[in-house]
Amino acid sequence: MSYITRYLKRGIISENPIFVQAIALCPALAVSGTVFNGLGMGLATAFVLLLTNVLISALRGFIPQKARIPCFVVIIAGAVTAVNMLIEAFIPVLHANLGIFLPLIAVNCIVLARGESFAFKNGLVRSAFDALGMGLGFTIAMVMLSAIREILGFGTLFRDTALVITLPEAFPQTILFILPPGAFITLGVLMAALRYVAAKRKLKNEEVPQS
């Protein structure tokens, strides 16, 4: 069962979709203004990814090799349609906040890439855990990015939910972080910071065996 932790670790840390692979940046930049939106988008994408990876893996014996991409696209679009309708029915506020980025999960690079490079070649359980790892990695990245933007921009955390925390008045609210430029700059700096930490850790690990 060691592959479970390996897949989860891979999705969250070593091959994180946003911080390492830098794919699916459109939703990451667009709906990361508040933690509520970021977490909602992350979980919706993770759920679609789980659904499509399992479906593609289950159907891989029936999908012809040459026509696989159109088949994947239809499976993904079907899953997104279902999730879109579910969110519209049960969490209408989130549906309104995410806007066109909810149907746009259908063209999210992570979903197609995992189907093509993993689920089409692997068994059902493995594909499910691969999807969980990548989905969690995406969700964690979304929460980190949106928490930073919300704190710096609004001076709050978890707004639009019952858990809202408001920082003291003296805390400066920099409106730039809520506007589009803030998204680009925050993600760029966060990515660089994580790379710096990763490089430091790697250096440390390499030094230990020598000494």
């Binding site: 830098a22 430029p181 998204a183 680009f184 700059i185 993600l187 760029g188 700096v189 990515m191 660089a192």
Partner: peptide
């Protein structure tokens, strides 16, 4: 990527 993102932000 990071510097490209910061440049896009500007």
């Amino acid at each position: 990527f990071p510097i490209a993102l910061v440049a896009a932000g500007l």
